[in-house]
Design a protein around this nucleic acid. Structure first.
Lengths: 274, 274
DNA sequence: TAGTCTGCGTGCGCTGGCGTACAGACCTGT
DNA sequence: ACAGGTCTGTACGCCAGCGCACGCAGACTA
C-alpha cells in the first residue's frame, strides 16, 4: 500500500488519475529484485506484472540451444508482463533483472481487471506495448545491419536512460549475452570506447563519461526508439525532469585507463570504425 | 457489404460472432491490391486496417538511408494496421503488398469503435498483436544467429503458409530486400535449394516442391513462430482445413534445373551448409 | 602470503556475408 | 529477328565476427 509519491518513480503508475490509483495502489507490492534474478522463464504462466522503479529488466528470447538475445529492455518507463493483458497469460520471453532495484508487483488478476475497465490504464498499457513493439523491431534491424561497436553504444544508452546514475554493474560477458555476440567482441568495442574517453570499464563496473559522444557513435536505432517512445508516451517528460547527464568522472576507475592507454597508442583506426 | 462466406477467407473475420459481424460487415470494403503496392509509409497516419483474404502484406522497417528489412508478414490469418487500435494512429513501419490479392478494408474509426466495445473483436485483435510481437522478436533472433540459407527457408515457409498454392511470384532481388541481405546471397541460397530439389526457381517464379524438406533445412524460428501463433489463435485450424502441401512438379520450370545442374555436380558441400 | 577465481586483453585462423563487377539466360516489344 | 531490359549465376577481394586458446591482473579466500 505505497504512498503516492513513491509511485512517481514508475512513469506508468505516476500518470494514473486519483481514481484509478485508489483502486490499484492497495494491491501493489514493492519488491526488491537482485541482479540476475529471473522474473519468469520462457513458457511460464505469468502471475504478476512488474512496474520497475529503479530496477531494469531485460526481456530475452531463448533459443533451443539455450543461447539468448535481448529483444527489449524495461525500466521505470514501463511494465514487465504485457502478455497478461494481451490475452495469453504465458510468454515466450525470459525476464531477467539487469540492474538491481525495486519494482511494484501487481497480481495478474488485478491488472486484467483494471485493463478490462477499458479506461486510462488500458490506454496506457496499450501504448506502452506499442512502444515495446517498436523497440523489438528496431532490435531486429540493428541485429541485421549494425556492428558490435554500434550495438554496444545503443545498449549502453538504452540502459543509461533507465538508470538513476551513470554507472552500470555489468560484466562484458553479460553484455555479450544480451547482444548475442562473443565476449571478445564486447571487449574490443568497449576498449575502443574507453580509449576515446567515452566510458570507463573496470571489472564489471561501467561508467559513462561522455554521453553526447556516445550518442554520436551510436547507430540511429537508439534515437529512433527513443523518439517513438516519446511520441507514444509523451507524459514521460513531465515526470522525469532530471535526466542523468554529463561527465562526472570517477576517480578510482580513472587509474585503470592509464594502464591501458600506455600499451599501444598509435593505431590506425582509433575511432570506432564506421 | 460482403457475404458471410466471403469473410471466411480471413481468419480473424471468420471467427466473429453473428452479432459483431452484423455491425462490422456493412463497413467492410473488398479491395484488390497489386504487387508492390504501398498500403502505408513509415510515419503515415493510418486510415484503414486491412484484413487480407488471399493477399500477403509485409511490414518493413525503413532505415534512414532507405534500406529496409521485413519485420513481419501478414496474410489471411491477421490484420494490417494494429497501431490504429493500440492507441497511436501512426506507425513506424511501411506496409507493402508482397503477393497480389484482396483484402477487406475497414476505416479506422470503425475498427476503433468496435475495439472500444471491449468485446470479442478486441480480444482477437490483442491476441493477434501478441503473435505479431512474437514474430518480430523471432525475426530479431534470426537476424542475429542464422545464415541466409536458413533465413530464406523461414521466409519461404512463412509466405507459403499464407498462400493458396505452392507458387510465389517474387524475384531474388525482392527477397533480398525483405531479408536485408544481398541479392547474390539469395541467389546462392536459392541455388542450393534448387539443387536439392526443394524448390524451383525461374525468373521470379518460385515453386516449392518439397515442403517437408524445406522445414528440415529451416532454423527453428519458423516452427517457434508458427507454434506461438497457433497457441495464441487456436481457431485458425478450424477455418483453414486445407494447407497447400506436397510436391506437385512444374514441368516448364523443370527444364531450367537441368541447365544448371550440369555445370558442377561434385561439390563438397552439396547440402545447405549448416 | 599464497592460491584460486573472475574479468579482461590479445592473437590466430576461419568463414559468412558484403561490395563490386561481369556475363549468360530469358523476356518483351518493335 | 533484333534490341534492350530484367533476372540470375559466378567470381574475387575484403572484413566483421566467430571459435579457440592463452596470458594477465585484480579480487577474494584460506
Amino acid at each position: 500500500m505505497p504512498k503516492n509519491d513513491a509511485l512517481q518513480k514508475n512513469h506508468l503508475l505516476a500518470n494514473l488519475s486519483g481514481e484509478v490509483c485508489q483502486r490499484v495502489c492497495p494491491c501493489l507490492e514493492l519488491v526488491s529484485m537482485s541482479l540476475g534474478q529471473v522474473l519468469y522463464e520462457s513458457g511460464d504462466t505469468l502471475r504478476y506484472v512488474y512496474f520497475p522503479t529503479d530496477s531494469i529488466i531485460t526481456l530475452l528470447y531463448v533459443m533451443e540451444d539455450g543461447t539468448s538475445t535481448e529483444i527489449s529492455v524495461v525500466g521505470n518507463e514501463g511494465v514487465v508482463g504485457v502478455a497478461l493483458f494481451m490475452g495469453c497469460e504465458s510468454t515466450t520471453t525470459r525476464a531477467v533483472v539487469l540492474s538491481t532495484g525495486s519494482a511494484y508487483r501487481l497480481p495478474g488478476r488485478w491488472i486484467k481487471d483494471e485493463f478490462n475497465r477499458h479506461g486510462e490504464m488500458m490506454n496506457l498499457l496499450l501504448r506502452y506495448t506499442q512502444s515495446l513493439i517498436a523497440q523489438t523491431a528496431q532490435t531486429a534491424v540493428c541485429n541485421r545491419y549494425h556492428t558490435i561497436d554500434q550495438q554496444l553504444c545503443r545498449w549502453l544508452l538504452l540502459s543509461l536512460d533507465r538508470l538513476p546514475g551513470n554507472q552500470l554493474i555489468m560484466t562484458q560477458e553479460q553484455i555479450a549475452n544480451m547482444l548475442g555476440v562473443r565476449r571478445e567482441g564486447v571487449t574490443q568495442a568497449a576498449g575502443k570506447l574507453q580509449k576515446l574517453g567515452v566510458i570507463n570499464y573496470n571489472r564489471g563496473h561501467i561508467t559513462v563519461l561522455d554521453r553526447p559522444h556516445l550518442e554520436k557513435l551510436c547507430c540511429e536505432c537508439y534515437a529512433v526508439v527513443k523518439k517513438e517512445t516519446e511520441r507514444l508516451l509523451p507524459y514521460l517528460h513531465r515526470v522525469n525532469a532530471e535526466t542523468p547527464a554529463g561527465p562526472s568522472g570517477d576517480a578510482h576507475t580513472q587509474l585503470n585507463i592509464a594502464n591501458h592507454v600506455v600499451g599501444r597508442t598509435n593505431r590506425s583506426s582509433y575511432g570506432i570504425t564506421r
